[in-house]
Every structure is written in C-alpha cells, then in structure tokens.
C-alpha cells in the first residue's frame, strides 16, 4: 500500500511539476475555454432569465472541450517520448499510474474551472460563487469526466488518429455524467429547491463511482501490449 501511494504521488508530482514548467497543457486548455465563453457572450444576447438557463450548458461545453484537449496532451506526452514504457517498466501496480494520471488531469480541469468561473461571472454579470453547491457539482462532474477520459485517452493514444478518436470514444460514454452535471448545475443556478437537484446529484455521484471503478479495473489491459 505504501508503495502504491508513493508511486501515485510520484506520478502526480511529475505531471504537475512538468506542467508548471511548460504550461503547455493549461495554456491550450485556457485559451480554448476563454474563447468559447467569449464567443457565447457575443453570440447570445440574453436577458436575465435566459441567461440563467443557458449558463450551465455553456459552462459544461467549455469544460468538456477544454478537458479533451488536456487529456489528449497528457497521454501524448507519455507516448511520444516513450515515457509510457518508462512508467510501465516500474514495479508498481498499473492502477497507481492510472490514478496518478487521472488526479493530475482532474487538477488541470479544476484549474481551468477556477479561471473560467470568475471570468464568466464578470462577462455575464452573474455571481457563480454565490452557490456553494455549484462548485461541488463542478468537482463531481470533472471527476467523472477525467476518470473515463484518462482511460480512453490511454486507449486512443495508441492510434494514429488519436486526436479525433478520443472525443468519438469519450462523448457517448460520458453523456450520463454530463447530463447529470448540467441538470444539477442549472438547478443550483436557478435556485431550485434541493429535492429537485438531489436526484441529479445522486446520479452524478453514482456514475462517478461506477466509472472510476471500471477504469480502475480495465486500465491494465488497455496499456498492455
């Protein structure tokens, strides 16, 4: 167990340290995310009611597409310089590698969210931080998304067409997480009563658990040659 945690920590540390240097992954995710919300801002002339309705959709479109960019890069870096072999040569459980990569990807997505939310709040003149529940939904949604995303990115990175393969594999699978996240977010934004939000939250939580366990079980067979 200590070996597992040590290896997991090493992978997370390595990804964060490398990213802090290059900022390659975060900058492409952020540029993309900010472009999306700017374009929505110009394209949609919204009154206050309509705005509350579309906000959660716009936010999740932004996170999801920016997230795909990040996932692709995160595994491509390993594959292209042969570092995936380096990881696989280490005498550690494959799932430590998987969780290390998944946690790093989750951190990147949350960093993007932490920058997108205030920018969005200013652009659209709403305070997204007023609802503590929304932040939880974003965390849970991002968790489910990166759990499946890391697994499928490891699969897609083997193929020559990986850049288009990842979204094609990922989006159909991850739809339950997204629907639940969008519904729960808009519930909080429209200040609906808790009993209307709760089912979505439960669904989100259930999918997070299911997806994380499946990814945990099959990761080894995905990276094996």
């Amino acid at each position: 167990m200590r070996g597992f945690l040590r290896a997991l920590g090493a992978v997370v540390w390595k990804d964060l340290a490398a990213e802090l240097r290059s900022r390659e992954l975060l900058s492409s995710m952020l540029v993309f995310a900010l472009l999306v919300i700017f374009i929505f801002n110009f394209a949609l002339e919204l009154d206050a009611v309509a705005r509350a309705n579309v906000t959660s959709g716009v936010l999740w479109v932004t996170f999801v597409f920016a997230g795909t960019l990040g996932l692709n890069r995160s595994l491509a870096v390993e594959k292209d310089r042969g570092c995936l072999d380096g990881l696989l040569l280490a005498p550690v459980d494959r799932t430590a590698i998987y969780f290390g990569k998944a946690i790093a990807n989750l951190v990147f997505m949350l960093v993007v969210a932490a920058i997108v939310l205030p920018v969005y709040s200013i652009l659209y003149n709403v305070n997204l931080f007023a609802q503590g529940g929304l932040l939880w939904v974003i965390f849970l949604g991002a968790e489910g998304y990166t759990a499946v995303g890391t697994l499928l990115a490891a699969m897609a990175v083997q193929a020559r067409t990986r850049d288009i393969l990842l979204p094609i594999l990922l989006f159909p699978v991850v739809i339950p997480v997204l629907v639940a996240a969008v519904k729960a977010s808009s519930g909080y934004l429209q200040r609906l009563p808790m009993e209307e939000i709760l089912p979505w939250l439960q669904l989100l939580l259930a999918y997070d658990v299911i997806f994380t366990s499946i990814a945990f079980m099959v990761f080894e067979s995905v990276v094996e040659e």
């Binding site: 920590g9 090493a10 340290a17 390659e24 570092c83 280490a90």
Partner: peptide, 26 residues
C-alpha cells in the same frame, strides 16, 4: 532497461527525472 528512446521527461531537470524514477522504484 535502456531502450531506443530515452524514457525521460523533457520538462523535468536531470535530477528531477532520476528522483521521479527513484520514487517509482522505491
């Protein structure tokens, strides 16, 4: 193992690379 590819991370320093692999091997 020394393979065709160096199996190193370009955005880490030499000692950081070794430290990373050292942790992986305990």
């Amino acid at each position: 193992v020394v393979s065709h590819l160096p199996l190193l991370y370009g955005d880490l320093t030499a000692e950081e690379n070794l430290r990373f692999y050292g942790r992986m091997y305990g």
